[in-house]
């Protein structure tokens, strides 16, 4: 099956100044992610996983190299253009949920659509929350929800704008095992339903093994890039 490339990373380098030292945290990273696939970036702490995710999502700028999302080069975009790119093409799920504490569950889900200028979005957001099993929690504020429920709201928010690619940074890292399992199920189900490309960053090798491809990082370099075969089955 021929699939188009949704994320292309070429010769990506990221360096930081740490005191008098120049620290290279990503060194010549290149890979492509095809439309509709799932993948995981794994590696020990400090291997550069989150930095790589941030660069792919246009949250940060590379020292050199290229990131293309759906054919659009991130490097050439202004701050605001990158915001629009994230809004239209990218979804996020964070380890610590990152819901806005002053907004209800429904309002949190509505925000990405409203930012696009869409105004009648209440029903769509409500049905998305229904989908993640929170149809009765629309008016609840984040503090009134459990960790698992907050992550479900975050999933609803991530999928509401039909992103081309969804980045998830340790999505179960702050949840207990049972809740984590349920959230994982939900994440993969939603991903399968919407045909979105999923790229996970995780320490959890079991979670990574549920994706179609595992990219291992160590010391800022890719040490292996393997297909697991699992995800493909799931997607087909």
């Amino acid at each position: 099956m021929n699939k188009s490339i949704v994320l292309r990373v070429s010769n990506l380098v990221k360096e930081y100044q740490s005191g008098s030292r120049r620290l290279r945290v990503l060194d010549d990273i290149s890979f492509d992610i095809e439309q509709g696939t799932t993948g995981a970036i794994v590696g020990p702490s400090g291997s550069g996983k989150t930095t790589l995710l941030a660069l792919c999502a246009g949250l940060d700028q590379a020292t050199s190299g290229q990131v293309e999302v759906n054919g659009i080069s991130v490097a050439g975009l202004s701050e605001d253009e990158r915001s629009v790119l994230r809004n239209e093409q990218i979804g996020f799920v964070f380890q610590n949920f990152q819901l806005m504490p002053t907004l209800t569950a429904l309002e949190n889900v509505m925000v990405p659509l409203e930012l696009r200028g869409e105004r009648k979005v209440r029903d769509k957001a409500a049905s998305m929350l229904e989908k993640v099993g929170l149809g009765d929690r629309l008016s609840h504020y984040p503090v009134q929800l459990s960790g698992g429920e907050q992550q479900r709201v975050a999933l609803a928010r991530a999928f509401i704008n039909d992103p081309q690619i969804l980045f998830a940074d340790e999505p179960t890292g702050n949840l207990d095992e049972d809740t984590g399992e349920k959230v994982t199920e939900l994440l993969f189900d939603l991903n399968a339903d919407s045909g979105t490309t999923l790229l996970l960053v995780t320490h959890d090798l079991d979670l990574a093994a549920r994706t179609g491809r595992i990219i291992r990082l160590k010391g800022g370099r890719i040490v292996s890039d393997e297909l697991t075969g699992v995800a493909d089955e799931r997607l087909v």
Partner: peptide
């Protein structure tokens, strides 16, 4: 943190 999330989900600086 809220500001950063807003920027993540696509809010422009001016917004």
């Amino acid at each position: 943190p809220s500001l950063a999330v807003l920027r993540c989900v696509g809010a422009r600086i001016r917004q």
